[in-house]
Design a protein around this nucleic acid. Structure first.
Length: 630
RNA sequence: CGGGGCAUGGCGCAGGCUGGUAGCGCGCCUGCUUUGGGAGCAGGAGGUCGGGGGUUCGAAUCCCUCUGCCCCGACCA
């Protein structure tokens, strides 16, 4: 057949465009005809409009070369496989192939949310400013909130989240404890004007999110609802085939009580997680509890000595200069806190090899609103500059001294002398200076003892794909959202909120499932289940006919099949299908056909196998049964 | 917002310092050959070199300015 005949290649008259022997055709007034198919996946007569699953009818925009803008593997592969295209900073178009995957993620999320008892609804993306002013977030949220004005000059925002709208709905519609508890969710486009969007849809400004909110009569019911959603999330990420962990999380700006994040483990992750190597403990390092790494404090053995240390500023320099281990030095960080008597300094002491955790600092009583001191403030109070600061001899009436648990357990340590160019060595708490206030101040490091006493903490990177919060009553109180309780009293709702980054999941999945040839989709979110690849189909009618018939058979067995009818060279076709990452590939060729065989190869790994038709169907069936997602 | 970089056919890049008629690979179109891992040969189309201003006989190249995008830090699904 001549290449020019490609476009108008006549279809087999006995086959419809789906490869079926016959199909029903109905006429639509003024709009041509529609072909209807019987779908045997469902037992009741079920008709569906012909889906576009032939490669020639699908906009497959694969790229041989990587666009220069993409840094991260998932971003590169999503562009190359033709899942997404960028429109502008942090804004992406989902191409037909990518949208299929996005929809499959949505489907799993919907099914599990529904199963948990939550009900789907859909709220406006644009929200009036008044609601945000009522909750107090109009001023608090900052530049991340995209603010708009309509033609009447009334202020609105494009919703980055929907606590206000849902609370407003609840206070209007929920009046009695009899209507509680209730959980509502939606899957919707959100916009957050991120400081720095990056990594494709991983951190886009516009993204697809599943957000859920629950309303309860009391704290117990809230804890109960939280558990249910937590379980639903675990099922969702399991079904999606992701390697994930739920970790304790900081409640951050949203506030509230208990909170967990769900992370997909991946090197490219932006979060650091602390996971116990032999127990259940798992937390974001932002709040992972740091125990003292020392068994106890050893008794003093050295005399307090002041030594000259010209030009020494860091603990590393100090340790090298004095020839002592870094673990025998303490660093002093100076903060300013507001007190009733005016601004006062606070010294935070950490062991030389440890770093301050700002989230923890903000939880120390008296230091919630503290800030780093300026050099001028430090000199005025301590008489020396950064590099030579320490806790010795400070006026404890004026200065608060807080030591990290480990720092408080060090003996015979070296620390700044509050005299430029000098440090003290052989310093001991209790002997040379008063015992400090002790707090958990530092960020955990790999190998720290696990806070639950079981094993050691290992640090791993994760991509946050879900977050669950027990909000409590802050929104309901601010927005006066109340119901009538059993005893006739008026009470505010106890609320929970729960998010899943639907579009981010796609990127996270690619990050976790790829090889040098392209994406290797987990079954549940693959854009197609099976790729059908006929070789030499342009010259061999038999191959084409067999492909059409197999395509038909697979579809009738409920598989979503990408039939590659592009009549490309085998190498090009295989490279494309590998890049796209469809789990199962079936090859047809004249040689195979003559032997009455098909070639099967799984995208994930193993070598190809030559099978008979019935063997192939059994293999696919077994695979489907093994995978809980399908 | 601070720091760094980039902008040249659809994609990936060279050219720029030293101004003088814009080039390579891939892709695309046509024809012939080829046909199981990104084919070969021949022919062809496609670029106001991100926008504006300036210097110059002459600017992709030098100067000014604006815009967009990417990377590194403070945010979050």
């Amino acid at each position: 057949m001549s290449p020019s005949g490609r476009r108008e290649r006549p279809r087999e008259p006995s086959l419809d465009p789906c490869g079926r022997r016959s199909s029903e055709t109905i006429a639509l007034p003024g709009r041509g005809t529609l072909q209807l198919l019987q779908c045997s996946r469902v037992s009741s007569p079920f008709v569906e409009i012909l889906p576009r699953m032939r490669a020639r009818d699908l906009s497959l925009f694969t790229l041989k070369e990587t666009p220069a803008e993409a840094e991260l593997v998932s971003h590169r592969l999503m562009l190359r496989a033709g899942l997404i295209r960028s429109l502008s900073q942090g804004l992406y178009t989902w191409l037909p192939l990518g949208l299929r995957t996005l929809r499959r993620v949505e489907r799993v999320v919907r099914e599990e949310m529904d199963r948990s008892g939550a009900q789907e609804l859909l709220m406006p993306a644009i929200q009036p400013a008044e609601l945000w002013q009522e909750s107090g977030r109009w001023d608090k949220y900052g530049p991340e909130l995209l603010r708009l004005r309509d033609r009447h000059d009334r202020p609105y925002c494009f919703g980055p989240t929907h606590e206000e709208v849902i609370t407003d709905l609840a206070r209007r519609e929920l009046r009695s404890y009899r209507q509680l508890p209730v959980a509502w969710y939606q899957i919707q486009t959100k916009f957050r004007d991120e400081i720095r969007p990056r990594f494709g849809v991983m951190r886009a400004r516009e993204f697809l999110m599943k957000d859920a909110y629950s309303f309860h009569r009391d704290e117990t019911s809230l804890a109960d609802g939280y558990e249910k959603i937590f379980a639903a999330y675990s099922r969702i990420f399991t079904r999606l085939g992701l390697d994930f962990r739920a970790v304790r999380a900081d409640t951050g700006s949203i506030g509230g009580r208990s909170s967990h994040e769900f992370h997909v483990l991946a090197q490219a992750g932006e979060d650091l997680l602390a996971l116990s190597d032999s127990g259940p403990y798992a937390a974001n390092v932002e709040l992972a509890e740091a125990l003292s790494v020392l068994p106890g404090r050893a008794p003093p053995t050295q005399p307090l000595t002041r030594v000259p240390t010209p030009g020494i500023r860091s603990c590393e320099d100090l340790a090298r200069h004095l020839g002592i281990p870094l673990e025998k030095t303490l660093k002093t960080l100076v903060f300013v806190r507001e007190t009733s008597a005016g601004p006062r300094l606070a010294l935070l002491l950490l062991r030389g090899d440890h770093t301050l955790n700002e989230v923890k600092r903000a939880k120390v009583p008296g230091l919630e609103e503290a800030r780093y001191a300026t050099e001028e403030e430090i000199r005025r109070e301590l008489g020396a500059g950064p590099g030579s600061l320490g806790p010795l001899g400070v006026d404890l009436q004026r200065v608060l001294v807080v030591a990290d648990r480990t720092a408080a357990a060090v003996s015979d340590f070296a620390v700044g002398a509050n005299e430029d160019g000098y440090h003290d060595t052989g310093v001991n708490w209790g002997r040379d200076l008063p015992e400090p206030t002790v707090a958990d101040l530092r960020t955990v490091v790999d190998g720290d003892p696990s806070p639950d006493g079981r094993g050691r903490l290992r640090l791993q990177r994760g991509i946050e794909v879900g977050h669950v919060f027990q909000l409590g009553t802050q929104y309901s109180e601010r927005m006066n959202a109340t119901f009538r309780d059993e005893d006739g009293s008026e009470r505010v709702f106890w609320m929970g909120c729960y998010g899943i980054g639907v579009s981010r999941i796609v990127a996270a999945a690619v990050e976790q499932n790829h090889d040098e040839r392209g994406i290797v989709w987990p079954a549940a979110m693959a854009p197609f289940d099976v790729a059908l690849a006929p070789v030499s189909s342009q010259s061999d009618t038999g191959v084409r006919r067999a492909a059409e018939s197999l395509y038909d058979e697979l579809r009738s067995r409920g598989y979503e099949v990408l039939y590659d009818d592009r009549e490309l060279r085998a190498g090009v076709m295989f490279a494309d299908l590998d890049l796209i990452g469809i789990p199962h590939r079936i090859v047809l060729s004249p040689r195979l056909l003559a032997a009455d065989k098909l070639e099967y190869v799984a995208r994930r790994g193993s070598a190809s196998r030559e099978l008979r038709r019935d063997e192939l169907f059994r293999l696919l069936e077994d695979d489907r049964r093994r995978d809980p997602a399908l």
